[in-house]
């Protein structure tokens, strides 16, 4: 467990330093040193605040999250075009409804990913996450049905739970 925490701390430090390097774009010894120093301070503070864990830095998701993001991006574009068409239609063909969909992820992190994916896709907004279910406001019946088919749920579960069989 301690070793795992160390691994998380180091990877947090590396991520922070990488972002710092890309944002500053100046490669002088003095500034690099100051950057390292500030990253170390942030990691120490985060350690003291006890926020370095699987939720704060989900490195266990690995590359699978990237393939999920690609799939999600395609879904977002499709949903965007659909909602844009509805808004531009002079008859405004919307049919708002509330549905409860099951979030089958065991970890809170998985449920958060699922709820945020639902919200990020235009046409569906998650309103409440409670008791393994998400209350969703959909702008039209087709979108609610898409969601109820559960493909997104399965994919998020595959991304967040297969990691070593251990649940945060």
């Amino acid at each position: 467990m301690r070793r795992k925490r160390l691994l998380h701390s180091i990877s947090l430090g590396l991520v922070l330093f990488g972002v710092w390097l890309l944002l500053s774009g100046i490669f002088e010894p003095l500034l690099l040193g100051l950057g390292v120093l500030s990253c170390v301070i942030v990691v120490l503070i985060a350690h003291r605040m006890d926020v370095i864990d699987r939720e704060g830095l989900p490195i266990h998701l690995g590359w699978r999250i990237l393939t999920y993001w690609v799939w999600l991006a395609v879904e977002i574009v499709k949903a965007n075009l659909d909602v844009a068409r509805r808004i531009l239609d002079p008859k405004l063909p919307i049919h708002p409804l509330l549905v409860r969909v099951k979030a089958s992820q065991a970890s809170e992190l998985g449920q958060v990913i699922y709820a945020n994916s639902i919200t990020l896709t235009p046409g569906t907004v998650s309103m409440q996450v409670a008791g393994g279910e998400i209350l969703v406001h959909a702008i039209a019946r087709e979108m609610a049905e898409d969601l109820e088919r559960g493909e997104m749920d399965r994919r998020v579960t595959a991304v967040s739970e297969r990691a070593g069989g251990e649940i945060a």
Binding site: I76, N80, V83, A84, L120, P122, G123, T124, H137
Partner: peptide, 11 residues
């Protein structure tokens, strides 16, 4: 309206 705001935010 949140769906409309979502269009601006994503695409």
């Amino acid at each position: 309206r949140m769906h409309a705001a979502g269009i601006t935010d994503t695409l």
